[in-house]
Write a protein that binds this DNA or RNA. Structure first.
Lengths: 344, 344
DNA sequence: CTAGGGTACGTAAGCGCTTACGTAAGCGCT
DNA sequence: AGCGCTTACGTAAGCGCTTACGTACCCTAG
């Protein structure tokens, strides 16, 4: 009999269904070795009692943990919150709970968060954001994750490939290439890049795409100005100041994510530089505000919600011998922030 | 001795420190009844071994659960992601993990998420977002939360007052009043409100503030046009269309949150209506992009990160007899989206 | 010198679940 | 009929912790 004012336990269900604890457990887990008739009875009783398994007891006893940990660089960056939205959506559909952590783009702190999640025995870890160029940190994270997987943990990464785990990967290089080609086709020759921190692999990849497009179009690489800063609006503002001061001949700015692009646009506006009349601007990611900026932003669309869902899907599947990769599509979305290069 | 390839358990620590399990547990929990010398030894051994308590075992045995559940309307809405950022920050500092859920602004689904969290035995629940006008749903949630608290659970709400739990509350009405006063002082008489869903208490409160300011200034309430829609950019766009079509005499639009304001600005731009020359626009919340919109948005600043932290702080304190309230400050931030009413 | 009480620790009983193992019944086969 | 195999279920041993209770010891008071 359920104790008054307490949630029903498995024994309560078992007693009321007149079976043993083991049978009740098996029936609810959908394991076989239980006749259909008994299984039905148990499930019915469980429903009547409003029984929900205690996840702590379940996990302790060796059942699967039902929580997924998600590490992002920063939750209030739309790129990450849209990815998180996808993860949370699918997790809810699967009856999983999502534990979310942010690393603040600090590799050491991220590693600490990762260890914390592992120590807390979450079942699944999703890790999203750029990898770090620092081989030491990445190697440590990789080792930690490998050990975690050996103990039955499940892992997937979003947007980073050096971790030795299943990953969903946008083609950052192709995206960068598409942006640069678009600008070159509009006649731009003096292009500057507002890049995120030099240590992030995403930055390197997108940048490589931009460079390769310029090479393809036969432009001297020396024409490309690259300014590194934070992958944020503030970083975009700072980079813009620097570009305007040091390279006034620039006619187009490639911001390597939309957050920076937002900062770029904001600074250009306050400097009263017409966009795209005097300066074209492109971003990357297509976060949902990109369409509502003024002018609306030309950018590369990444299916962020979908990326979150796919990552969780990967982690939910049984582990494969070799890390799986899922590449995501991307799409150049041309809006109002780009136009023909001004005539000199 | 720790089993090879396994995380150390409390017994491992106890054996190595040459004390009993109970003493080790007490020492690490900082409970008294342990001599300082022994406690030190245990702590040192634990550190050497890299011991981290298994939270499932701990919770099962009756210790406090170390996870806080956070329910928000939508994670990729900056208002919520900034609040979540604050919660996650403080939680990390305290060694707590945050489980995040989103309700999609559906009261029924939110209730389901709440039950899920409770069933999962999270220790602390934070619930953020507008309450719903529907007394049925709010009463059910309230009952659920009361029972949860009676079993030792901790709860705090952010921005909703009808739940009978500790809450941190922005003064939505005063904020609405400040916005309307600002507009009236600029000479606006034909003001329209782009309001979120009529069922949300936040909407009602902010709206009440706007109305009361107009009354105070002696303007006929019939001059106020109110259009309800979703509390999103799309909702803002739709509301703007309706306002422009049905009330072309309008000179200022009050969007009841920044998301809607973003949509309002976007629509005005595509209709080539100068802001603030022909139409002034204000928002509410001061999400971080508000300053980067074009034109930058006049709005009410709410300390969202702080609100998240405060809510967790409240929930961490021992339960008080009566629900506590913390009101947050708010500040009218005047930027470029508002100006004098055009002369007729 | 002993009773009473505090302090520091150990023993062991759970928390609610999963699952290895045991067992009884039913089946087809030789 | 007797054997082994499968099926359907029960028994009980944990998972790793917390904590009520027991015990040895020392200190103080009478």
């Amino acid at each position: 009999m359920p104790r008054a004012g307490q949630r029903p336990r498995l024994v309560d269900v078992a007693e009321r269904a007149d079976v043993s604890l083991a049978t009740a457990s098996r029936a609810l887990a959908g394991r076989d070795g239980v006749s259909a008739q008994v299984a039905d009875r148990v499930r019915r009783v469980a429903r009547e009692l409003g029984y929900v398994a205690n996840p702590y007891a379940r996990t302790l006893a060796g059942g699967a943990s039902s929580t997924v940990g998600l590490i992002v660089h920063q939750v209030d960056d739309p790129y990450f919150s849209e990815i998180a939205g996808g993860v949370i959506q699918l997790a809810a559909e699967q009856g999983l709970l999502v534990q979310i952590c942010q690393s603040g783009r600090d590799p050491a702190y991220e590693l600490q968060q990762l260890r914390h999640l592992i120590a807390q025995r979450v079942g699944i870890i999703l890790i999203s954001g750029s990898g770090y160029d620092d081989p030491r940190v990445e190697a440590e994270a990789r080792a930690e994750l490998a050990a975690f997987q050996d103990h039955g943990g499940r892992v997937a990464a979003i947007g980073r490939h050096a971790l030795g785990v299943d990953a969903v990967l946008p083609d950052n290089e192709a995206g960068g290439r598409a942006l640069a080609q678009h600008l070159v086709d509009l006649g731009h020759r003096r292009i500057a890049v507002a890049a995120g921190s030099a240590g992030l692999t995403t930055v390197a990849d997108r940048l490589a795409g931009v460079s390769s497009a310029l090479r393809q179009r036969g432009l001297p690489p020396s024409d490309l100005v690259v300014v590194h800063g934070e992958f944020t609006r503030g970083g975009g503002r700072a980079a813009t100041e620097q570009i305007l001061n040091e390279h006034p001949e620039t006619t187009a700015i490639v911001a390597l994510n939309d957050a920076m692009a937002t900062g770029v646009l904001s600074t250009l506006r306050s400097r009263r530089i017409p966009v795209p009349g005097r300066m074209s601007v492109v971003g990357f990611d297509d976060v949902s505000v990109a369409a509502d900026l003024a002018p609306s932003l030309t950018t590369i669309r990444l299916p962020m919600t979908e990326m979150g869902r796919t990552a969780l899907t990967l982690a939910l599947k049984p582990r494969s011998a070799r890390p799986r990769r899922r590449s995501t599509g991307h799409l150049l979305v041309v809006r109002d922030s780009t136009g023909p290069a001004p005539v000199a």
